[in-house]
Nucleic acid binder design. Structure first.
Length: 457
RNA sequence: GCCCUGGUAGUGUAGCGGCCUAUCAUGAGGCCCUGUCGAGGCUUCGACUCGGGUUCAAAUCCCGACCAGGGCGCCA
Protein backbone atom coordinates (compact mmCIF):
# COMPACT_ATOMS: atom_id res chain seq x y z
CA UNK A 1 0.00 0.00 0.00
CA UNK A 2 1.40 3.34 -0.97
CA UNK A 3 1.02 6.43 1.12
CA UNK A 4 1.19 9.90 -0.23
CA UNK A 5 3.27 12.35 1.71
CA UNK A 6 1.30 14.63 3.96
CA UNK A 7 0.67 17.68 1.83
CA UNK A 8 -0.79 19.67 4.66
CA UNK A 9 1.36 22.34 6.19
CA UNK A 10 4.02 22.13 3.57
CA UNK A 11 3.59 25.48 1.93
CA UNK A 12 5.93 24.57 -0.91
CA UNK A 13 3.08 22.56 -2.45
CA UNK A 14 0.23 24.42 -4.11
CA UNK A 15 -2.54 24.40 -1.54
CA UNK A 16 -5.43 24.27 -3.96
CA UNK A 17 -4.12 21.22 -5.74
CA UNK A 18 -5.71 20.52 -9.08
CA UNK A 19 -7.47 23.52 -10.56
CA UNK A 20 -10.96 22.29 -11.33
CA UNK A 21 -12.37 25.32 -13.11
CA UNK A 22 -11.18 28.35 -14.98
CA UNK A 23 -12.41 30.58 -12.18
CA UNK A 24 -9.93 32.12 -9.85
CA UNK A 25 -10.93 30.01 -6.85
CA UNK A 26 -9.19 30.96 -3.65
CA UNK A 27 -9.18 29.69 -0.09
CA UNK A 28 -8.43 31.58 3.08
CA UNK A 29 -4.89 30.29 2.75
CA UNK A 30 -4.27 31.09 -0.90
CA UNK A 31 -5.91 34.50 -0.90
CA UNK A 32 -3.26 37.17 -0.39
CA UNK A 33 -2.88 40.95 -0.58
CA UNK A 34 -1.14 40.37 -3.92
CA UNK A 35 -4.55 39.36 -5.31
CA UNK A 36 -5.70 42.95 -4.92
CA UNK A 37 -7.99 44.20 -7.71
CA UNK A 38 -8.40 40.79 -9.32
CA UNK A 39 -11.65 38.86 -9.39
CA UNK A 40 -11.71 35.86 -7.07
CA UNK A 41 -14.19 33.18 -6.09
CA UNK A 42 -14.30 32.00 -2.48
CA UNK A 43 -16.60 29.51 -0.84
CA UNK A 44 -17.32 28.20 2.61
CA UNK A 45 -19.57 28.49 5.63
CA UNK A 46 -21.03 31.79 6.79
CA UNK A 47 -19.59 31.90 10.26
CA UNK A 48 -20.74 35.34 11.30
CA UNK A 49 -22.68 38.16 9.70
CA UNK A 50 -22.30 41.71 10.95
CA UNK A 51 -24.74 44.15 9.49
CA UNK A 52 -23.79 47.68 10.50
CA UNK A 53 -26.33 49.37 8.25
CA UNK A 54 -24.15 51.16 5.78
CA UNK A 55 -21.65 48.32 5.62
CA UNK A 56 -21.89 44.59 6.21
CA UNK A 57 -19.26 42.01 6.99
CA UNK A 58 -19.46 38.31 6.44
CA UNK A 59 -16.89 35.98 7.91
CA UNK A 60 -16.54 33.09 5.55
CA UNK A 61 -14.93 30.03 7.05
CA UNK A 62 -13.23 27.35 4.99
CA UNK A 63 -10.88 24.51 5.79
CA UNK A 64 -7.96 26.79 6.49
CA UNK A 65 -9.43 29.83 8.17
CA UNK A 66 -11.53 32.91 7.61
CA UNK A 67 -12.01 35.25 4.67
CA UNK A 68 -13.79 38.52 5.28
CA UNK A 69 -16.40 39.55 2.76
CA UNK A 70 -16.93 43.30 3.06
CA UNK A 71 -20.02 44.86 1.51
CA UNK A 72 -20.32 48.65 1.67
CA UNK A 73 -23.95 49.45 0.90
CA UNK A 74 -23.14 52.16 -1.63
CA UNK A 75 -20.78 50.00 -3.64
CA UNK A 76 -22.66 46.72 -3.52
CA UNK A 77 -25.45 45.40 -5.72
CA UNK A 78 -28.65 45.66 -3.60
CA UNK A 79 -29.52 42.03 -4.33
CA UNK A 80 -26.12 40.89 -3.09
CA UNK A 81 -26.47 43.16 -0.06
CA UNK A 82 -29.83 41.66 0.70
CA UNK A 83 -28.57 38.11 0.30
CA UNK A 84 -25.74 38.74 2.74
CA UNK A 85 -27.75 40.46 5.44
CA UNK A 86 -30.54 37.89 5.37
CA UNK A 87 -28.21 34.89 5.42
CA UNK A 88 -28.40 32.40 8.29
CA UNK A 89 -25.19 31.46 10.06
CA UNK A 90 -23.45 28.29 8.86
CA UNK A 91 -25.03 28.43 5.40
CA UNK A 92 -22.70 27.43 2.60
CA UNK A 93 -22.09 30.18 0.09
CA UNK A 94 -19.98 30.94 -2.92
CA UNK A 95 -18.91 34.53 -3.36
CA UNK A 96 -17.45 36.17 -6.42
CA UNK A 97 -15.87 39.51 -5.88
CA UNK A 98 -12.91 41.80 -6.05
CA UNK A 99 -10.02 41.24 -3.71
CA UNK A 100 -8.94 44.32 -1.87
CA UNK A 101 -5.92 44.89 0.31
CA UNK A 102 -6.96 46.27 3.67
CA UNK A 103 -5.16 46.89 6.91
CA UNK A 104 -8.45 46.52 8.74
CA UNK A 105 -9.05 42.97 7.58
CA UNK A 106 -7.27 40.03 9.14
CA UNK A 107 -4.73 38.65 6.71
CA UNK A 108 -4.56 42.07 5.04
CA UNK A 109 -7.09 41.19 2.34
CA UNK A 110 -10.87 41.16 2.00
CA UNK A 111 -13.36 40.55 -0.81
CA UNK A 112 -15.92 43.06 -2.09
CA UNK A 113 -18.75 40.90 -3.45
CA UNK A 114 -20.21 41.18 -6.94
CA UNK A 115 -22.06 37.85 -7.08
CA UNK A 116 -23.43 35.90 -4.17
CA UNK A 117 -24.73 32.36 -4.36
CA UNK A 118 -26.29 30.48 -1.44
CA UNK A 119 -25.34 26.88 -2.10
CA UNK A 120 -27.08 25.57 0.99
CA UNK A 121 -28.99 27.66 3.48
CA UNK A 122 -28.63 26.55 7.11
CA UNK A 123 -31.80 26.06 9.14
CA UNK A 124 -32.20 27.91 12.43
CA UNK A 125 -31.62 27.62 15.25
CA UNK A 126 -28.40 25.63 15.05
CA UNK A 127 -28.29 22.50 17.22
CA UNK A 128 -25.15 23.96 18.70
CA UNK A 129 -23.17 27.07 17.98
CA UNK A 130 -19.79 26.85 16.27
CA UNK A 131 -18.49 30.15 17.64
CA UNK A 132 -21.01 30.85 20.40
CA UNK A 133 -19.66 32.21 23.63
CA UNK A 134 -21.27 29.47 25.68
CA UNK A 135 -19.88 26.14 26.68
CA UNK A 136 -21.30 23.07 24.94
CA UNK A 137 -21.27 19.76 26.77
CA UNK A 138 -19.32 16.89 25.26
CA UNK A 139 -22.44 14.79 24.86
CA UNK A 140 -24.18 17.54 22.89
CA UNK A 141 -21.10 17.86 20.72
CA UNK A 142 -21.04 14.14 19.96
CA UNK A 143 -24.78 14.23 19.20
CA UNK A 144 -24.09 16.87 16.54
CA UNK A 145 -20.56 15.90 15.67
CA UNK A 146 -20.66 17.29 12.10
CA UNK A 147 -21.26 20.71 13.60
CA UNK A 148 -18.65 20.22 16.31
CA UNK A 149 -16.13 19.36 13.61
CA UNK A 150 -16.63 22.76 12.05
CA UNK A 151 -14.48 24.07 14.87
CA UNK A 152 -10.88 24.16 13.67
CA UNK A 153 -9.56 22.86 16.99
CA UNK A 154 -11.82 19.81 16.81
CA UNK A 155 -10.69 19.08 13.28
CA UNK A 156 -7.07 19.56 14.26
CA UNK A 157 -7.21 16.42 16.40
CA UNK A 158 -8.13 14.37 13.36
CA UNK A 159 -5.54 15.96 11.15
CA UNK A 160 -3.00 15.00 13.79
CA UNK A 161 -4.46 11.49 13.97
CA UNK A 162 -4.07 11.14 10.23
CA UNK A 163 -0.46 12.26 10.50
CA UNK A 164 0.16 9.77 13.31
CA UNK A 165 -1.10 6.94 11.10
CA UNK A 166 1.09 8.06 8.20
CA UNK A 167 4.10 8.24 10.50
CA UNK A 168 3.48 4.76 11.88
CA UNK A 169 3.22 3.47 8.34
CA UNK A 170 6.41 5.17 7.24
CA UNK A 171 8.36 3.89 10.22
CA UNK A 172 7.29 0.28 9.93
CA UNK A 173 7.61 0.06 6.18
CA UNK A 174 11.11 1.51 6.50
CA UNK A 175 11.85 -1.25 8.99
CA UNK A 176 10.81 -4.04 6.68
CA UNK A 177 7.25 -4.58 7.86
CA UNK A 178 4.41 -5.62 5.60
CA UNK A 179 1.01 -4.07 6.21
CA UNK A 180 -1.71 -6.70 6.49
CA UNK A 181 -5.43 -6.94 7.09
CA UNK A 182 -6.99 -9.70 9.12
CA UNK A 183 -10.70 -10.50 9.37
CA UNK A 184 -12.95 -8.49 11.64
CA UNK A 185 -15.74 -11.05 11.29
CA UNK A 186 -14.61 -14.15 13.14
CA UNK A 187 -16.09 -17.45 14.25
CA UNK A 188 -14.45 -17.38 17.65
CA UNK A 189 -12.16 -14.95 19.28
CA UNK A 190 -12.44 -16.11 22.80
CA UNK A 191 -8.83 -15.60 23.69
CA UNK A 192 -10.13 -15.05 27.18
CA UNK A 193 -11.03 -11.91 29.02
CA UNK A 194 -12.71 -9.40 26.82
CA UNK A 195 -16.29 -9.97 25.80
CA UNK A 196 -17.25 -10.19 22.15
CA UNK A 197 -20.03 -8.64 20.13
CA UNK A 198 -22.10 -11.43 18.66
CA UNK A 199 -23.93 -11.20 15.36
CA UNK A 200 -25.65 -13.30 12.74
CA UNK A 201 -23.47 -14.42 9.85
CA UNK A 202 -25.89 -15.99 7.39
CA UNK A 203 -26.87 -19.15 9.26
CA UNK A 204 -24.00 -19.09 11.73
CA UNK A 205 -23.10 -17.06 14.78
CA UNK A 206 -20.12 -14.82 14.38
CA UNK A 207 -18.28 -12.18 16.38
CA UNK A 208 -16.57 -8.88 15.78
CA UNK A 209 -12.83 -9.33 16.26
CA UNK A 210 -11.49 -7.96 19.51
CA UNK A 211 -7.92 -8.10 18.23
CA UNK A 212 -5.92 -9.45 15.27
CA UNK A 213 -3.88 -11.48 17.76
CA UNK A 214 -4.44 -15.01 16.49
CA UNK A 215 -4.18 -14.09 12.82
CA UNK A 216 -1.03 -12.01 13.05
CA UNK A 217 0.61 -14.86 14.96
CA UNK A 218 -0.41 -17.32 12.26
CA UNK A 219 1.32 -15.07 9.75
CA UNK A 220 4.58 -15.62 11.64
CA UNK A 221 4.61 -19.15 10.27
CA UNK A 222 4.50 -17.93 6.68
CA UNK A 223 7.73 -16.08 6.04
CA UNK A 224 6.24 -12.61 6.08
CA UNK A 225 8.28 -12.29 9.27
CA UNK A 226 7.30 -8.75 10.19
CA UNK A 227 3.72 -7.60 9.82
CA UNK A 228 1.60 -4.79 11.11
CA UNK A 229 -2.04 -3.89 10.97
CA UNK A 230 -3.95 -0.74 11.76
CA UNK A 231 -7.63 -1.40 12.04
CA UNK A 232 -10.70 -1.47 14.22
CA UNK A 233 -11.01 -3.64 17.31
CA UNK A 234 -14.27 -4.28 19.11
CA UNK A 235 -14.74 -4.82 22.81
CA UNK A 236 -18.09 -5.56 24.40
CA UNK A 237 -16.78 -4.61 27.82
CA UNK A 238 -19.29 -2.66 29.90
CA UNK A 239 -16.62 -0.06 30.57
CA UNK A 240 -17.60 3.46 31.39
CA UNK A 241 -14.44 5.52 31.62
CA UNK A 242 -12.64 8.29 29.80
CA UNK A 243 -10.20 5.78 28.30
CA UNK A 244 -12.47 2.97 27.08
CA UNK A 245 -14.72 2.73 24.04
CA UNK A 246 -16.23 -0.29 22.36
CA UNK A 247 -14.69 0.41 18.96
CA UNK A 248 -11.18 1.73 18.59
CA UNK A 249 -8.25 1.64 16.21
CA UNK A 250 -5.63 -0.87 17.18
CA UNK A 251 -2.09 -0.75 15.88
CA UNK A 252 -0.77 -4.28 16.00
CA UNK A 253 2.59 -5.68 15.04
CA UNK A 254 4.24 -9.06 15.12
CA UNK A 255 7.88 -10.03 14.48
CA UNK A 256 9.41 -13.46 13.81
CA UNK A 257 12.89 -14.74 14.73
CA UNK A 258 13.24 -12.44 17.72
CA UNK A 259 15.95 -13.06 20.32
CA UNK A 260 13.76 -11.76 23.11
CA UNK A 261 10.87 -9.41 23.74
CA UNK A 262 13.45 -6.67 23.86
CA UNK A 263 13.58 -6.74 20.03
CA UNK A 264 9.90 -5.90 20.00
CA UNK A 265 10.27 -3.11 22.55
CA UNK A 266 13.08 -1.51 20.56
CA UNK A 267 10.82 -1.41 17.51
CA UNK A 268 7.89 0.21 19.34
CA UNK A 269 10.15 2.66 21.07
CA UNK A 270 11.68 3.77 17.79
CA UNK A 271 8.24 4.02 16.28
CA UNK A 272 6.87 6.12 19.13
CA UNK A 273 9.81 8.53 18.98
CA UNK A 274 9.38 8.84 15.25
CA UNK A 275 5.62 9.40 15.55
CA UNK A 276 5.77 11.97 18.34
CA UNK A 277 8.75 13.74 16.80
CA UNK A 278 6.96 13.74 13.45
CA UNK A 279 3.80 15.25 14.93
CA UNK A 280 5.84 18.00 16.59
CA UNK A 281 7.45 18.73 13.25
CA UNK A 282 4.50 18.38 10.87
CA UNK A 283 1.55 19.52 12.95
CA UNK A 284 2.76 22.82 14.38
CA UNK A 285 -0.38 24.66 13.28
CA UNK A 286 -2.74 22.11 14.79
CA UNK A 287 -0.81 21.89 18.05
CA UNK A 288 -0.89 25.64 18.35
CA UNK A 289 -4.63 25.65 17.69
CA UNK A 290 -5.10 23.10 20.45
CA UNK A 291 -2.76 24.94 22.77
CA UNK A 292 -0.77 21.79 23.41
CA UNK A 293 2.94 21.62 23.86
CA UNK A 294 3.97 18.08 22.94
CA UNK A 295 7.36 16.99 24.21
CA UNK A 296 9.42 14.20 22.73
CA UNK A 297 9.69 11.59 25.52
CA UNK A 298 13.11 10.93 26.97
CA UNK A 299 14.66 7.85 25.37
CA UNK A 300 15.59 5.15 26.03
CA UNK A 301 12.43 4.56 28.00
CA UNK A 302 13.17 3.26 31.50
CA UNK A 303 12.22 -0.36 32.12
CA UNK A 304 10.56 -1.28 35.40
CA UNK A 305 9.73 -4.80 36.35
CA UNK A 306 6.20 -5.39 37.54
CA UNK A 307 7.61 -6.12 41.02
CA UNK A 308 9.55 -2.88 41.20
CA UNK A 309 6.54 -0.92 39.94
CA UNK A 310 4.46 -2.35 42.79
CA UNK A 311 7.21 -1.49 45.27
CA UNK A 312 7.42 2.06 43.93
CA UNK A 313 3.74 2.84 44.37
CA UNK A 314 3.60 1.07 47.73
CA UNK A 315 6.50 3.21 48.89
CA UNK A 316 4.27 6.20 48.18
CA UNK A 317 1.41 5.08 50.28
CA UNK A 318 -0.43 2.43 48.31
CA UNK A 319 -0.88 -1.11 49.48
CA UNK A 320 -0.93 -3.40 46.48
CA UNK A 321 -0.15 -7.07 47.17
CA UNK A 322 2.32 -8.72 44.78
CA UNK A 323 0.43 -10.43 42.01
CA UNK A 324 -2.39 -7.89 41.95
CA UNK A 325 -2.98 -5.39 39.22
CA UNK A 326 -1.74 -1.85 39.79
CA UNK A 327 -5.24 -0.49 39.26
CA UNK A 328 -6.17 2.89 37.88
CA UNK A 329 -4.86 4.75 40.89
CA UNK A 330 -1.59 2.81 40.97
CA UNK A 331 -1.05 3.36 37.27
CA UNK A 332 -1.61 7.07 37.67
CA UNK A 333 0.65 7.31 40.72
CA UNK A 334 3.39 5.49 38.86
CA UNK A 335 2.93 8.01 36.06
CA UNK A 336 3.51 10.83 38.54
CA UNK A 337 6.60 9.16 40.00
CA UNK A 338 8.07 8.64 36.54
CA UNK A 339 7.18 12.20 35.51
CA UNK A 340 9.22 13.47 38.44
CA UNK A 341 12.13 11.51 37.03
CA UNK A 342 11.54 13.12 33.65
CA UNK A 343 10.06 10.08 31.90
CA UNK A 344 6.69 10.31 30.20
CA UNK A 345 7.08 6.88 28.58
CA UNK A 346 8.26 3.79 30.40
CA UNK A 347 8.07 0.03 30.23
CA UNK A 348 6.62 -2.28 32.81
CA UNK A 349 7.85 -5.82 32.15
CA UNK A 350 7.42 -9.30 33.53
CA UNK A 351 3.80 -9.23 34.62
CA UNK A 352 2.50 -12.27 36.49
CA UNK A 353 1.70 -14.84 33.82
CA UNK A 354 -1.57 -15.47 35.58
CA UNK A 355 -2.79 -12.04 34.46
CA UNK A 356 -1.66 -12.57 30.88
CA UNK A 357 -3.36 -14.42 28.01
CA UNK A 358 -2.48 -17.94 26.94
CA UNK A 359 -0.33 -16.90 23.98
CA UNK A 360 2.25 -15.14 26.17
CA UNK A 361 5.44 -17.03 27.03
CA UNK A 362 6.04 -17.86 30.68
CA UNK A 363 9.30 -17.01 32.35
CA UNK A 364 10.15 -20.50 33.43
CA UNK A 365 10.61 -21.13 37.11
CA UNK A 366 8.93 -17.86 38.07
CA UNK A 367 5.30 -16.72 38.31
CA UNK A 368 6.12 -14.09 35.68
CA UNK A 369 5.88 -13.81 31.92
CA UNK A 370 7.79 -12.40 29.00
CA UNK A 371 5.43 -9.52 28.59
CA UNK A 372 5.47 -5.76 28.67
CA UNK A 373 3.21 -2.77 28.95
CA UNK A 374 4.12 0.61 27.58
CA UNK A 375 2.74 3.40 29.74
CA UNK A 376 2.49 7.03 28.64
CA UNK A 377 1.81 9.63 31.34
CA UNK A 378 0.31 7.12 33.72
CA UNK A 379 -1.77 5.20 31.22
CA UNK A 380 -1.19 1.96 29.39
CA UNK A 381 -1.13 2.59 25.67
CA UNK A 382 0.45 -0.64 24.47
CA UNK A 383 1.09 -4.17 25.63
CA UNK A 384 2.83 -7.13 24.14
CA UNK A 385 5.53 -9.65 24.67
CA UNK A 386 7.15 -12.77 23.46
CA UNK A 387 4.68 -15.40 22.33
CA UNK A 388 4.69 -19.08 23.17
CA UNK A 389 5.66 -20.67 19.84
CA UNK A 390 6.13 -24.24 21.10
CA UNK A 391 3.01 -26.22 20.24
CA UNK A 392 2.88 -28.40 23.35
CA UNK A 393 3.46 -25.50 25.74
CA UNK A 394 0.85 -23.45 23.94
CA UNK A 395 -1.77 -26.19 24.25
CA UNK A 396 -1.07 -26.68 27.93
CA UNK A 397 -1.26 -22.93 28.56
CA UNK A 398 -4.65 -22.89 26.86
CA UNK A 399 -5.85 -25.66 29.10
CA UNK A 400 -4.44 -23.86 32.11
CA UNK A 401 -6.51 -20.81 31.14
CA UNK A 402 -9.65 -22.92 30.82
CA UNK A 403 -9.85 -22.75 27.03
CA UNK A 404 -10.64 -25.67 24.76
CA UNK A 405 -7.75 -26.17 22.29
CA UNK A 406 -10.13 -27.93 19.90
CA UNK A 407 -11.90 -24.67 19.14
CA UNK A 408 -8.57 -23.08 18.18
CA UNK A 409 -7.50 -25.68 15.63
CA UNK A 410 -7.23 -23.15 12.82
CA UNK A 411 -4.73 -21.27 14.96
CA UNK A 412 -2.86 -24.17 16.51
CA UNK A 413 -2.28 -25.79 13.14
CA UNK A 414 0.08 -22.93 12.27
CA UNK A 415 2.24 -23.94 15.24
CA UNK A 416 2.45 -27.59 14.24
CA UNK A 417 4.41 -27.28 11.04
CA UNK A 418 7.25 -24.90 11.78
CA UNK A 419 6.72 -21.72 13.79
CA UNK A 420 9.59 -19.36 14.58
CA UNK A 421 10.04 -17.67 17.91
CA UNK A 422 8.11 -14.45 17.73
CA UNK A 423 6.64 -11.54 19.62
CA UNK A 424 4.52 -8.50 19.06
CA UNK A 425 2.33 -5.78 20.42
CA UNK A 426 -1.00 -4.05 20.26
CA UNK A 427 -1.31 -0.33 20.74
CA UNK A 428 -4.43 1.78 21.14
CA UNK A 429 -4.08 4.58 18.61
CA UNK A 430 -6.65 6.82 20.29
CA UNK A 431 -5.04 6.30 23.68
CA UNK A 432 -1.75 7.43 22.20
CA UNK A 433 -3.45 10.53 20.76
CA UNK A 434 -5.31 11.16 24.00
CA UNK A 435 -2.16 11.15 26.10
CA UNK A 436 -0.06 12.98 23.54
CA UNK A 437 -2.57 15.83 23.27
CA UNK A 438 -3.72 15.66 26.91
CA UNK A 439 -7.31 15.11 25.82
CA UNK A 440 -9.71 14.69 28.74
CA UNK A 441 -11.53 11.81 27.06
CA UNK A 442 -10.59 9.14 24.51
CA UNK A 443 -13.82 9.99 22.67
CA UNK A 444 -12.26 13.30 21.65
CA UNK A 445 -9.89 11.32 19.43
CA UNK A 446 -12.70 9.45 17.65
CA UNK A 447 -14.93 11.08 15.04
CA UNK A 448 -18.02 9.10 15.93
CA UNK A 449 -17.31 7.34 19.22
CA UNK A 450 -18.99 4.09 20.19
CA UNK A 451 -19.45 3.34 23.85
CA UNK A 452 -21.80 1.42 26.08
CA UNK A 453 -24.77 3.49 25.11
CA UNK A 454 -23.77 5.54 22.12
CA UNK A 455 -24.44 3.97 18.74
CA UNK A 456 -25.57 7.16 16.97
CA UNK A 457 -24.38 9.09 15.06
C1' G B 1 -22.17 -3.44 37.09
C1' C B 2 -21.27 -0.40 41.84
C1' C B 3 -20.84 4.51 44.48
C1' C B 4 -21.65 9.77 44.19
C1' U B 5 -23.84 13.98 41.56
C1' G B 6 -27.24 15.82 38.24
C1' G B 7 -31.44 16.33 34.21
C1' U B 8 -34.77 23.92 33.58
C1' A B 9 -35.59 27.74 26.29
C1' G B 10 -31.57 25.72 20.26
C1' U B 11 -26.98 26.04 23.69
C1' G B 12 -24.89 26.81 28.73
C1' U B 13 -26.95 27.99 33.45
C1' A B 14 -29.69 30.39 38.28
C1' G B 15 -33.66 28.93 41.30
C1' C B 16 -34.23 23.68 45.32
C1' G B 17 -42.02 23.79 48.81
C1' G B 18 -46.00 29.54 48.17
C1' C B 19 -41.95 35.32 46.66
C1' C B 20 -41.78 31.50 39.51
C1' U B 21 -46.52 34.89 35.07
C1' A B 22 -38.92 30.82 36.27
C1' U B 23 -32.84 34.13 36.38
C1' C B 24 -28.79 35.36 33.44
C1' A B 25 -25.85 34.60 29.24
C1' U B 26 -25.70 32.86 24.38
C1' G B 27 -28.92 32.19 20.28
C1' A B 28 -33.17 33.13 16.97
C1' G B 29 -36.75 37.05 14.77
C1' G B 30 -37.47 42.54 13.96
C1' C B 31 -35.50 47.64 14.01
C1' C B 32 -31.17 51.47 14.26
C1' C B 33 -26.00 52.13 13.08
C1' U B 34 -20.05 52.78 7.12
C1' G B 35 -14.89 49.23 9.74
C1' U B 36 -17.11 44.99 12.62
C1' C B 37 -13.86 40.89 14.20
C1' G B 38 -16.52 38.51 22.21
C1' A B 39 -19.29 44.88 17.89
C1' G B 40 -23.00 48.31 20.18
C1' G B 41 -28.23 50.11 21.13
C1' C B 42 -33.74 49.11 21.25
C1' U B 43 -37.32 45.12 20.99
C1' U B 44 -39.67 40.30 20.64
C1' C B 45 -39.35 34.81 21.03
C1' G B 46 -38.14 30.48 23.50
C1' A B 47 -37.60 25.76 28.88
C1' C B 48 -38.88 22.94 34.36
C1' U B 49 -36.90 14.60 31.04
C1' C B 50 -41.05 11.05 31.62
C1' G B 51 -44.61 8.28 34.89
C1' G B 52 -46.56 7.77 39.72
C1' G B 53 -47.04 9.82 44.78
C1' U B 54 -46.97 13.49 49.24
C1' U B 55 -49.19 18.48 49.98
C1' C B 56 -54.16 23.48 50.37
C1' A B 57 -49.74 24.37 47.11
C1' A B 58 -44.25 20.84 43.51
C1' A B 59 -39.17 23.07 38.87
C1' U B 60 -38.34 22.40 44.18
C1' C B 61 -39.95 16.71 48.58
C1' C B 62 -40.55 10.96 47.87
C1' C B 63 -40.60 6.42 44.50
C1' G B 64 -39.67 4.37 39.66
C1' A B 65 -37.97 4.66 34.53
C1' C B 66 -34.82 6.79 31.04
C1' C B 67 -30.56 9.83 30.18
C1' A B 68 -26.02 12.37 31.50
C1' G B 69 -21.37 13.77 34.38
C1' G B 70 -17.42 12.21 37.91
C1' G B 71 -15.05 8.05 40.36
C1' C B 72 -14.28 2.78 40.70
C1' G B 73 -14.63 -1.97 38.60
C1' C B 74 -14.52 -4.91 34.21
C1' C B 75 -10.49 -4.53 30.27
C1' A B 76 -6.29 -5.77 23.95
Amino acid sequence: MCHLPNLLYRPSYPSHGVQMSDKNIRTSRSLAPTDADSEVVVQGWAQDIRNLGGISFLQLRDRYGIIQITAPKKKTDPQVMDAITSLSRESVVRVTGTAKASDQAKGGVEVLPTHFEVISAAATPLPMGVIDKVNVEADTRYDHRFMDLRKPETRAIFEIKSTVLSLIDEYLVNNGFTEVFTPKLVASGAEGGATLFELRYFDQNAYLAQSPQLYKQMLMSTGLDKVFEIGPAFRAEPSDTTRHVSEFISFDGEMAFIESQRDVQVMIEGCMQSVIGGVIERCKGQLELLGVDVALPKAPYPTLTYESAVEMVNAEGMNIPLGEDLGTEGERLLGNIMARQGSEMYWIVEYPDEAKPFYIMEKEGTPYSYSFDLDYKGQEISSGGQREHRYDNLVSRMEKKGLDPASFNFYLEAFKFGMPAHGGWGLGVERLIQKMLDLPNIREAILFPRDRIRLVP
